[in-house]
Amino acid sequence: MREGTIATQKGRSTGSNRQERATGTANRHQPRIAVLVDGGSAAASEIVASALRVHAGALVVGQRTYGHGSVQTIMPLQNGAAIKLTTGRWYDAADVLLEGNGLRPDVELPTPPDKLLAGVEDPWIDRAVELLRSQRH
Rank of each mutant, 00 (worst) to 15 (best):
T111E: 15
P113D: 09
R32V: 02
N27Q: 14
R28A: 15
V96Q: 14
D114I: 06
R28N: 13
L98C: 06
K10M: 09
K115E: 14
V96C: 08
N27V: 12
S16K: 06
G39V: 02
S50A: 14
I74L: 12
Y66Q: 15
A118T: 11
P31N: 10
S50D: 10
P105T: 08
H137G: 12
N27L: 14
I33D: 09
A118N: 08
E20M: 09
P110Y: 08
V129K: 11
T14S: 12
H137K: 12
R28Q: 14
V35R: 04
P110H: 06
A49V: 02
L109K: 01
E130C: 00
V107S: 05
R18P: 01
G40R: 15
R32L: 13
T5K: 07
T14F: 10
S13H: 14
T86K: 13
A128M: 08
A43K: 10
V60Q: 06
G88P: 01
V54L: 03
D38E: 04
R89E: 15
V71F: 11
S16T: 13
D95C: 01
N27E: 14
T23E: 13
Y66T: 15
L98F: 04
R104T: 10
D126M: 03
Q9G: 01
H55I: 08
Q78G: 14
T111H: 05
R32Q: 15
L103C: 06
G4C: 02
E20W: 08
P123M: 10
T111L: 11
R133Y: 04
Q78F: 03
H137W: 09
V129S: 06
K10A: 05
R127P: 00
A7V: 07
A22K: 08
T8W: 00
V37K: 07
L77W: 02
H55S: 11
I74S: 14
G102Q: 03
R89V: 12
N79P: 06
T65H: 11
E121R: 15
W90V: 14
S134G: 06
R2V: 00
K84P: 00
T5R: 13
H68Q: 11
R104I: 04
A51T: 09
A58N: 01
N79W: 07
L117M: 12
G88A: 04
Q72M: 12
V48G: 08
G4R: 03
G24H: 11
S41L: 01
W90Q: 07
L131A: 06
S13T: 15
T23F: 14
I83P: 00
I33K: 07
Q9M: 13
P112N: 11
G24D: 15
Y91C: 00
I47G: 03
T86S: 13
A81P: 02
D92H: 09
E99Q: 13
H29L: 11
I6R: 00
G69K: 04
R136V: 11
G100W: 04
G102Y: 03
I33R: 02
G119S: 13
Y91T: 02
M1P: 02
A93P: 05
S45V: 06
A56Y: 08
D95T: 01
I33L: 11
G100Q: 09
D122F: 01
V35S: 07
L59Q: 01
R18K: 13
V54P: 02
